[in-house]
Amino acid sequence: MAATMTNKMMAKMSLRGRRGKVAFVKTQLYKIVCDTVFNSFDTTTTKLDEYISKYLKYAPERMGGGGRKK
């Protein structure tokens, strides 16, 4: 995901789109990531969603993410 989106873009997203953010689940990139991961690794949708959710959650804190709003 880091190769396809900037931290600034990921900071405006969440997995389900709560609190006014864009829902990553509804994007084409989510479908592509799922297909790729399921073809390469033995995992479940729940585990993948958990990983993606955490990755998006901490995007504001990474360089170029814009920081957390207070």
Rank of each mutant, 00 (worst) to 15 (best):
G66H: 01
Y58I: 14
Y55H: 13
D35R: 10
V22D: 04
R18C: 04
V37Q: 03
R18S: 09
M5L: 15
L48R: 07
F38Q: 08
T27Q: 02
I52G: 04
R62M: 09
Y55T: 10
C34E: 14
A2W: 09
E50Y: 11
A23L: 02
S40Q: 13
C34L: 12
G65W: 08
M5P: 04
L48G: 04
N7S: 01
T44V: 02
N7F: 06
K54C: 08
G67E: 04
V22T: 14
Y55S: 13
L15W: 02
S53R: 09
R18T: 10
G66P: 05
V25G: 04
F41N: 02
F24Y: 08
G20C: 03
R62S: 00
M1S: 10
L56E: 07
M63W: 12
K26R: 10
T36K: 11
F24D: 02
E61H: 05
G65E: 04
T27H: 00
L56D: 03
L29D: 11
M5W: 07
T4I: 10
G17H: 06
N7Q: 12
P60V: 02
K69R: 14
M13H: 06
S14R: 08
Q28F: 04
T43E: 08
A23W: 00
T45A: 14
T6I: 05
L48D: 02
K47L: 15
L56V: 08
G65V: 03
K12I: 05
T46R: 09
F38I: 01
F38G: 05
N39I: 02
K12N: 12
M9W: 04
L56A: 09
T6G: 09
K54R: 11
G17A: 03
M63E: 15
K26D: 14
S53L: 03
K54T: 11
T45D: 14
N39D: 12
F38R: 10
L48F: 00
N39Q: 13
T44K: 02
M10R: 15
K54I: 09
S40E: 13
T27R: 01
D49S: 08
A59F: 02
K54L: 11
Y58R: 14
R16H: 10
C34T: 11
M10S: 08
L15T: 08
D42W: 00
D35I: 00
L48Y: 02
F38E: 07
G66L: 03
K70E: 08
M9V: 15
L56G: 07
E50V: 10
L15H: 04
M63S: 15
G64Y: 07
Y51R: 12
K31Y: 06
R18E: 14
A59Q: 06
K12E: 13
E61N: 07
N7W: 03
M13P: 04
A11H: 06
G66M: 03
R18W: 01
R19Y: 14
F41Y: 13
F24K: 03
T6K: 00
G65D: 00
A3C: 08
K31N: 09
K31W: 04
L48N: 00
T43A: 04
Y30C: 06
V25S: 15
C34K: 15
